[in-house]
Computed example of a mutant assay.
Amino acid sequence: MNIGDPFIFGAYHYDLYPEGNGKFGPKASLEGHNLGNDFDNNLPWRMYHGRSIPGFPFHPHRGFEIITIVEEGYADHFDSKGSKGRYGEGDVQLMSAGSGVLHGEMFPLIHEDKPNHLRLFQIWMNLPAASKMTEPQYKMLWHEQIPIAKPTGDVRIKVILGEYEGVKSLGSYPTLGLKTLIIV
């Protein structure tokens, strides 16, 4: 049986956030930002749906999985199942919404003395019909533990899921439709 392409959506956020204000928001003026719906790519940084801290407050997900890779900066995750935590600087989050979960991800501007740049990738994958009502799951892969393949010269490949040239990932993720994911 061919279930088709499970890929739903991919997102890339690169924001040149300024210094923080001590409350995880920007020290800079919010003038020109459409708070609650700030997606203007002409600006160097966006608040997205955040009003004082950039990010995406509580919103629902169901029936798909999200892989979030924060290469630069930080994200704060919290959800209706009680999972929460801060990750970034190369960490990866695997989240299965399964039967449904409310979750939020905010981008705290933790540095008050230097810029808080954010570089984040997300991949959304549709769950197979048989897995859509599974219990939501959340798993962190901390950057210090992610296996690295070094095929040639200065090339470094993070093995998030699966295997690449004999380097195996930390394990599998039970419902994820994606079997192999590597990041160069």
Rank of each mutant, 00 (worst) to 15 (best):
P26N: 07
P26T: 04
K27A: 15
K27V: 11
K27H: 00
K27M: 10
A28T: 09
A28Q: 14
A28S: 14
A28R: 06
A28E: 15
A28W: 02
A28M: 04
S29Y: 09
S29Q: 11
L30I: 14
L30Y: 01
L30C: 11
L30W: 00
E31Q: 14
E31D: 15
G32N: 01
G32K: 07
H33T: 11
H33K: 15
H33S: 10
H33R: 15
N34I: 08
N34Q: 14
N34R: 15
L35I: 14
G36H: 11
G36L: 09
N37V: 01
N37C: 07
F39E: 01
F39Y: 13
F39Q: 09
D40Q: 06
D40V: 07
D40W: 03
D40E: 08
D40L: 05
D40M: 11
D40R: 02
N41L: 14
N42L: 13
L43F: 06
P44Q: 09
P44F: 11
W45N: 09
W45A: 14
R46W: 04
R46M: 15
R46Y: 00
M47R: 04
M47P: 08
M47F: 07
M47T: 07
Y48P: 02
G50P: 09
G50D: 06
G50V: 05
R51Y: 03
S52F: 06
S52K: 03
I53C: 05
I53N: 04
I53A: 03
P54D: 13
P54R: 11
P54M: 11
G55A: 02
G55H: 02
G55W: 02
F56M: 12
F56R: 02
P57M: 07
F58K: 09
F58G: 01
F58L: 13
H59Y: 13
P60D: 10
P60H: 12
P60G: 09
H61Q: 12
R62C: 09
R62W: 00
R62Y: 01
G63M: 07
G63A: 05
G63Y: 03
F64P: 07
F64S: 08
F64I: 12
F64C: 07
E65T: 07
I66E: 13
I66G: 10
I67R: 04
T68Y: 12
T68D: 13
I69R: 12
I69L: 14
V70W: 05
E72K: 15
E72C: 02
E72D: 09
G73M: 05
G73A: 09
Y74H: 15
Y74T: 08
Y74A: 10
Y74C: 04
Y74V: 10
A75I: 09
A75H: 00
D76N: 12
D76C: 00
H77A: 10
H77V: 12
F78N: 01
F78A: 13
S80Q: 07
S80V: 06
K81M: 15
K81Y: 13
G82H: 03
G85A: 08
R86G: 00
R86Y: 03
R86C: 01
R86L: 13
R86A: 01
Y87Q: 04
Y87I: 08
Y87D: 08
Y87A: 01
Y87C: 04
G88K: 10
E89A: 10
E89S: 11
G90Q: 01
G90N: 03
G90R: 03
G90Y: 02
D91I: 03
D91F: 02
D91P: 04
V92N: 05
V92M: 05
Q93E: 10
Q93D: 04
L94Q: 08
L94E: 08
L94C: 07
M95V: 06
M95N: 04
M95P: 06
